[in-house]
Design a binder for these strands. Sequence first.
DNA 1: GAGAAAAATCGACATAGTGTAGATTTTGTG
DNA 2: CACAAAATCTACACTATGTCGATTTTTCTC
Lengths: 206, 206
Amino acid sequence: MPGTQPARRRRATERKGDLRERAILDTCESLLAEKGYEAMTVGDIAQGAGITRGALYFYFGSKQEVVTALVARTVEHLWERSRATAESDDPRQAIAAAMRRTIELWNEHGLVMRTAIDLSLTVPEIGQLWSHTADLFTGAIVAVLERAGVPAGGAPDQAAAMARALCWMIERSFYHASQESPGSLELASAACEHIWLTCAGLTRQG
Amino acid sequence: MPGTQPARRRRATERKGDLRERAILDTCESLLAEKGYEAMTVGDIAQGAGITRGALYFYFGSKQEVVTALVARTVEHLWERSRATAESDDPRQAIAAAMRRTIELWNEHGLVMRTAIDLSLTVPEIGQLWSHTADLFTGAIVAVLERAGVPAGGAPDQAAAMARALCWMIERSFYHASQESPGSLELASAACEHIWLTCAGLTRQG
DNA sequence: GAGAAAAATCGACATAGTGTAGATTTTGTG
DNA sequence: CACAAAATCTACACTATGTCGATTTTTCTC
């Protein structure tokens, strides 16, 4: 079962199968955009990748596994990008930077991210992947809130609980906005940013 | 196609079919709790309702239609409850009341609400139902924010945009919390309430 | 309460998609 | 080259869906 274990890859030459695997994932992403998860069949993916259904089952055990691998690939990318971002010391700047990065990520990978969210309930592995991603994001929000002076702790008015709610707010706002126009993404982002700032006690009028 | 048009009901005596229709919806709800949407088959629902698949198709054209009707029934109930609630003049009280009511609704109907959210993308009719529900809720938040002094308007720091983000925050927080324990629902609710209050400028320290 | 119209139910069929298995071809390696 | 591993194909069995025509049951009307 390739696709589940990307480890044990200590081979210099790239197998033909690696090519195919990537082709399958790429095709899957296209089809997801074109016809959506439900309508997309294993036969469609195979055809798009230039093989038969039978051959596809050599790589992945089901449509769900294909999509899981696609989500894993995408989410890996998100994590990398997050790790590579230097956190600012100034909370205001940190928030602005985080929101800017979030817009980029949703613009580039919105489709797969939405798919991951939709399938989180149905496909446990995707659920884990995504909930881990959310945890990372929540952690970043906690850090910013605390540096801005919000007390640490899990009570409703302390950083951890607030960060969790803010994380869901951002997820859902972007989920919906990214289905509409890039413009509405900007607007949603600005609204989320303002609320985040307010929660951190960083708005002028407060 | 019954189940789509609950109008034109000007009949005193209750048809036998109305009974069955309700039995189908009830069974569907049970099965949803038991095995989830995907695993639940049309045959299962029919069996639970005491008829054959063929007979079920007399009432509903597909599994999706059954679930849509179930969501419609539930959502109708939500709307009624909302309409029946008197809005307080004091924003603080209004917010507290809204959150209390929201907890009740999720405790009672969490399963169907989660299902509605999950299927919003896949089943357009459910999407409409749910987005209308979200609009109602957003409207209520707007009203409270404005009464608390937040300027009206669609800019990121004005009532409409903020209310939308807050609505998604609440939806998503409850969605997740209601999958866990009633306790985590309370916590999530308290966090959302605190953020809402903060956005309305109603917290002491601000 | 008898009979006709409408409502409800059934069983059988056709279709579409899934996953599996065995045979076969391609590819890399000593 | 020969042989093992990788990759691919075709055919099959299974499950669930949705449709149809025939049949039975309910309901309405006089």
